[in-house]
Simulated assay, not measured.
Amino acid sequence: MADPNNVLQSWDATLVNPCTWFHVTCNNENSVTRVDLGNANLSGQLVAQLGQLPNLQYLELYSNKITGTIPEELGNLTNLVSLDLYLNNLTGGIPTTLGKLTKLRFLYEHFKIFMWLTYLVSL
């Protein structure tokens, strides 16, 4: 991901615990629960590894220059409540794997707002 404003400067992959990184919130067990990178001028594509954050509840990536498709692996984020991809340059549709996210209540994507207040149906 390109980071012209250096907002990811604290993101050191050699650290065992990402809870010390800026724009990352963790719970008491040092598990990532929130990533707030909205309006950070980031560009590039979303990586499938985001789907490996089992306790992630909020993924805020609005108002960037993110391109490509939404990774199917985001369907593994079973605790996700909010996925904000609003105002990016994403292509393709919403992966059907997001239909597994029964806790998801807000999905902001491609200038459209979807609010799921009860259960998700297969997309």
Rank of each mutant, 00 (worst) to 15 (best):
S10I: 02
N17K: 03
R34H: 08
P18L: 09
D84C: 02
L90D: 03
L77Y: 00
S43D: 11
Y62V: 00
V81T: 02
G68R: 03
N28P: 04
D12T: 06
V7I: 09
A48M: 04
W21D: 05
L59T: 04
T69N: 12
L42Q: 14
V7F: 15
N39Y: 13
L56M: 05
P4E: 12
S31H: 12
T25R: 08
T78E: 02
L61H: 03
W21L: 13
N30V: 03
L83H: 01
K65V: 05
N30M: 10
E72A: 15
I66F: 14
Q49V: 02
Q9H: 15
V47L: 13
C19I: 06
N30D: 15
L77D: 01
L74V: 05
Q52W: 04
T67V: 11
V24G: 04
T67Q: 14
T33V: 05
L42C: 11
Y62S: 06
P4G: 05
P71D: 06
N55I: 00
N17D: 15
S10K: 08
V16D: 05
V47A: 12
Q9P: 00
N17G: 02
V32G: 09
T91M: 09
S43P: 01
V32C: 07
G44N: 06
A48R: 11
L85P: 00
Q49A: 11
A40Q: 11
A48L: 05
G44E: 00
L90C: 10
L87T: 01
T91S: 14
N55E: 03
L53N: 02
T78Y: 01
H23F: 10
L90T: 09
N76C: 03
G38A: 15
L42H: 12
L46I: 12
T67Y: 03
Y62N: 12
V24R: 05
L56K: 00
N39C: 09
C19S: 09
I70D: 06
V32T: 04
C26K: 05
E73Q: 11
G44S: 13
L46K: 09
C26I: 08
G44F: 04
L85K: 11
Q45W: 00
N64C: 12
N79W: 01
N6R: 14
G51A: 10
N76F: 09
L74E: 03
L15R: 15
S31T: 06
L37F: 09
G38W: 15
D36K: 07
P54V: 03
T25Y: 03
E60N: 11
W11E: 04
N30I: 02
L50N: 06
E29Q: 12
L8D: 07
V7E: 13
L59P: 10
Q49W: 08
T20G: 14
N6D: 10
T20S: 15
I66S: 01
N41V: 07
V32S: 08
L42R: 13
L74T: 01
E29F: 08
N30F: 13
T67K: 13
P18E: 06
G38C: 13
A40P: 14
G38R: 13
S10D: 07
L42M: 09
N41H: 09
Y86H: 13
D12F: 05
L42S: 14
N88R: 00
Y58I: 01
